[in-house]
Amino acid sequence: MSANNAFATHEGAMIDLRGLRKSFGSNEVLKGIDLTVQRSEVQVLIGPSGSGKSTLLRCVNHLEQPSGGQILVAGELVNRSDLKPRAFQRHLNRIRTHLGMVFQQFNLFPHKTVLENVVEAPVQVLGRSKDEAVADAEELLAKVGLADKRDAYPVSLSGGQQQRVAIARALAMKPSVMLFDEVTSALDPELVGEVLRVMEDLAAEGMTMMVVTHEMGFAERVGDRVIFMADGNIVEEGVPAEIFSHPREERTKRFLGDILK
């Protein structure tokens, strides 16, 4: 319980990366990243393919094990090395309940209905009562505009609908931070807007968010800070207006030139 309160009351950075490194074999993908995300801040990560954006996001909730550096979430060190495997796993599970993640490929559970997808973790992980979880889930589904799909299976939904369910599923854990990894990249263009709108609403409610995206309009409109990454380094960061209209670095100019063409 005290740990939960820390997420609600922590005054410093919600996410604090210090010298974060990650290698896959001899391929160093993150080369010492320093980055902080304050409460209610929306940080947008942009950069060319292979620059390490996904890897960075996945290190935050330890889906990837970092090779070096520190990851602090609400002041708590994620990649502790002092715990035995079992204790470390429990520690990770607890921290992950505070970090919602949404994936490019949705990853809804295909054998469960929309409602079952959303109530699964609150009931199984947090031990909430079924009734309570269902009431919460219905509210969240209404919020993402899918109240009428509660008994549908994911396979019968459009990509945009599936992604909105995935967002509701993550929100059902009442996370303190939401991580979005190119959540509109797998969608048909006409479905992108409905997902971005849900994210925009979340941002307006004060959710702390890290968003990897190629949607520059969204970054400019919703982002508080934009981080431009290339080759495993942060090349440039700043408020969106500054980055998009007056990029300082040559690398940033080139990337923005390519993408806005």
């Binding site: 909730n61 889906l63 796993q89 429990r90 599970n93 607890r94 992950r96 309940t97 970090l99 919602g100 993640m101 994936f103 490929q105 990853n107 809804l108 559970f109 295909p110 054998h111 699964e120 973790a121 199984q124 992980v125 947090l126 995935a166 599923r169 993550a170 854990m173």
Partner: peptide, 26 residues
């Protein structure tokens, strides 16, 4: 698919819960 396990783990589900509730049924 690996994404199923990652989705479950990102929700704080442990490995046996993930196996029992997500992987095995599929």
């Amino acid at each position: 698919p690996k994404g199923q396990v990652e989705a479950a783990r990102s929700l704080g589900m442990g490995s046996s819960l993930t196996m029992r509730r997500i992987v095995l049924p599929q």
